[in-house]
């Protein structure tokens, strides 16, 4: 656990784990689960910057994910754009949107901010399901495969390497950001915004930057997952999905990048592990969520770390 605290130790450990995983989980389904964990983890790592470090809750991040996914679906599927251009445009478009709405939204505090992001996400998902001429409506639309300069990843294994690499990249970026002046300013904002402002930090600018970054993480993950799944539906942009993303961050442990990864893994694995329970699935899932937050209110990773430390001390 000590390794996790050093800057690159955790990253190396995770990279080693990611390298080994395909030999342990050989079949396409297990790799698919791994891929979905990675997709969610990338989003959660980005969202954690906003929730854990800037202390701002977003209940609309699935909207950014949905925009990324649909941008790739529409631009590649209906307008024959190359995949990389669609992906970059999606990321740039979402960044612009996030930037434009960030100022008025981030002026708000606490639950008003959550509300405004919820509204944004809702509007996105309504547009996606209503503009059926463009988006295929509530039933969604097919997305062509990802072709990058003539190369097309075939099968879960090829995709696994893409997602694993991106996840490591996302973590590396996030950690650099946390250690940067922006990260320090953010932590100051989280501690006491007024104090930070008095100390000369442009608090709104900090929050806007981190909001845009986390939105772009979601958009890129959305865009790639659309190519990977071959299909998009408005459900990906839904409020419930936004809540799920926030839950990943909080249950893993706020302000902990690896916590976000762990939370994403847990929230993705649970429905798969519980699928045999049939009608009891929701019941057990809700119970696990409640109990883990009651037992480890700071989240899984900080909780486990604390437990290990007290055991070592004893």
């Amino acid at each position: 656990m000590k390794l996790l605290d050093s800057r690159y130790g955790g990253l190396l450990l995770l990279a080693a784990g990611l390298l080994l995983l395909p030999w342990l989980a050989g079949n396409a389904y297990l790799l698919d689960v791994a891929n979905r964990i990675a997709i969610n983890a990338i989003i959660a790592v980005g969202l954690n910057l906003l929730i854990g470090y800037a202390g701002q809750i977003s209940l609309g991040h699935a909207g950014f994910l949905g925009l990324g996914a649909y941008a790739s679906a529409i631009l590649c599927g209906s307008y024959d754009w190359p995949a990389w251009l669609a992906l970059l445009s999606a990321a740039a478009g979402v960044a612009l949107l996030a930037f434009l709405v960030a100022r008025p939204i981030l002026r708000l505090k606490g639950h008003y901010l959550a509300m405004a992001t919820l509204g944004l996400g809702m509007i996105v998902s309504l547009v996606l399901s209503n503009e059926s001429a463009l988006t295929g409506g509530p039933d969604g639309m097919a997305v062509p495969g990802l072709v990058l300069f003539g190369w097309e990843p075939q099968g879960e294994r090829a995709w696994y390497w893409i997602f694993a690499t991106l996840l490591l990249l996302a973590i590396w970026l996030a950690q650099n950001l946390i250690d940067s002046p922006l990260g320090r300013a953010l932590r100051a904002v989280h501690g006491s915004e007024v104090a930070a402002r008095v100390a000369g930090v442009d608090t709104t600018a900090c929050k806007v930057q981190v909001f845009v970054i986390s939105a772009v993480f979601a958009a890129i993950a959305g865009s790639l997952s659309a190519h990977y799944t071959g299909f998009v539906t408005p459900g990906q942009a839904s409020f419930l999905h936004s809540v799920e993303l926030v839950t990943m961050v909080v249950i893993g442990g706020m302000a902990s990048t690896y916590g976000a990864v762990l939370g994403a893994a847990l929230m993705t694995l649970l429905p798969q592990l519980l699928s045999g329970l049939e009608d009891y699935e929701m019941l057990v899932f809700g119970l696990i969520l409640m109990v883990s937050m009651i037992v480890l209110p700071q989240g899984l990773l900080p909780g486990l770390r604390g437990w290990l430390q007290t055991r070592r001390a004893a």
Binding site: I51, I57, V243, V246, T247, V250, I251, M254, D279, Y280, E281, M282, L283, V284, F285, G286, L287, I288, L289, M290, M293, I294, P297, Q298, G299
Partner: peptide, 28 residues
């Protein structure tokens, strides 16, 4: 009450868990 002192967000997640649990129970 058992999670007193936890961050507010954690409490909110508990209510989300409760909501899923209650829906599951009602459905059952």
């Amino acid at each position: 009450d058992r999670a007193r002192g936890a961050p507010v967000v954690s409490l909110v997640i508990i209510t989300i868990g409760a909501s899923i649990f209650l829906r599951g129970l009602a459905q059952l």
